[in-house]
Amino acid sequence: MAETRPQPVMTMLVSSISGGGRALRVAPDIAERLRHGGWHVHVRVVTEAEAPASVARALSAGKHPDAGTGAPIVGALGGDGFVAAVAQGIAGSESALVPLPGGRGNDLCRAIGVGSNARVRADALAPLGTPSSGTLHDRVRALDGIWVSDLTSDSEPNRRLVLGVVSLGLDAWANKLANESRLTAGPIAYGWGAVTAPAHFRGAAFRARVDGVECDLPGWVLSVSNSGFIGGGVNVVPDSDPFDGTLELFRADQVPLRRVIPAVVHVVLRRNANHPLVHVSSVRELDILGPEGLPAMADGDLVGHLPLHVEVAPGIVRVLV
């Protein structure tokens, strides 16, 4: 007689601010859909005053058993930055992360193939709560990340885990302007940011040490990609695979503004960056040295200012896809 496993237990962390409160609004429905499939779901709202990584770390050290993964299952309902912070909290442990799209862009969920609709995601996960189901363990994969740290500090706590794309230049300004806008749809907000960003940023003489080799990389954009997706579905690096143990360095040439605007429109409207001004190469680690003080954005948030150290974190978190 086949042995059945216990019903899975998920502690679902919910961002109180992601998507302008969208995650908080849909949380009861998401929990109910999972429970209908047989899951035991504990909901924990994470307020703006709390550190999601610390909350997740405490959960990961707890004793919520699940026979399908052999460790706690931690759901993260929120935007990309919230999901990445929860991932940092359980990084390197046997806990399983369940990303649930609840932000404006939801680019990580798009990149790993689970989509941008939280209700659809919950309905797809619900059947895994049936005790007779043996597929939960098979759906757990080792997801890569990017460690980003301040080169001016030797302190370990300054490291931040990124799951998507670290952006500098025009990309970063597009992200910043999208965050400051009142637009609630990720693609529309990022589109607005992208077409207005050239008025705020005119290119930079980026300097970097790429896999140990120092080089000058002048351009409008310098980004390091794990997932390939930014801006609510813009696939800037189609070759990026968040499960392959490597990163992609993305650069857009330093050319006159009259040539950049059409390229930006091409990237935003066609939802990818296959353009002659764009260059992509594989990389495992790099020091982005300058211009000093330039802001870097990732997973929708500010992650630091140059100079920064960036390196791949292979299989850093176990994720339920």
Rank of each mutant, 00 (worst) to 15 (best):
E3Y: 08
P6T: 08
Q7P: 08
P8V: 12
V14M: 02
I17W: 05
I17N: 02
R22A: 04
L24S: 14
R25I: 05
A31D: 03
A31R: 04
A31N: 02
E32P: 01
E32M: 10
H36C: 11
G38W: 02
W39I: 05
R44H: 06
A56H: 00
A58C: 09
G62D: 15
T69G: 08
V74H: 04
G78S: 08
G78P: 10
D80W: 00
A85E: 05
A87I: 00
Q88D: 03
G89N: 01
A91V: 05
V98S: 10
P99Y: 03
P101F: 03
D107T: 07
D107F: 06
G113A: 04
V114C: 08
G115W: 05
S116N: 12
A118D: 08
V120R: 13
R121K: 07
A124T: 10
A124W: 11
P127H: 03
S132E: 02
S132T: 00
H137K: 10
S149P: 01
P157M: 00
L161S: 05
L163M: 03
G169Y: 06
D171A: 00
D171E: 03
W173F: 07
W173Q: 05
L177H: 00
L177I: 02
R182N: 04
L183Y: 04
T184H: 08
A189S: 02
A194E: 07
A194Q: 09
T196H: 10
R202H: 13
A204K: 13
A205P: 07
A208Q: 04
R209Y: 08
D211E: 10
G212C: 11
E214S: 15
S223Q: 11
S225Q: 09
S225P: 10
S227N: 03
F229G: 10
G231Y: 07
V234P: 01
V234I: 15
V236F: 08
D241C: 04
P242C: 09
F243E: 12
F243Q: 11
T246H: 15
T246K: 14
L247Q: 07
L247M: 12
F250I: 12
Q254H: 13
V255Q: 12
P256Q: 13
L257Y: 12
P262G: 11
A263D: 10
H266K: 13
H266P: 06
H275S: 07
L277Q: 02
V280R: 11
S281Y: 07
V283C: 14
V283G: 11
L286V: 11
D287F: 09
G293Q: 09
D301E: 15
V310K: 13
P314K: 13
P314W: 14
G315K: 08
I316P: 11
R318K: 15
V319M: 15
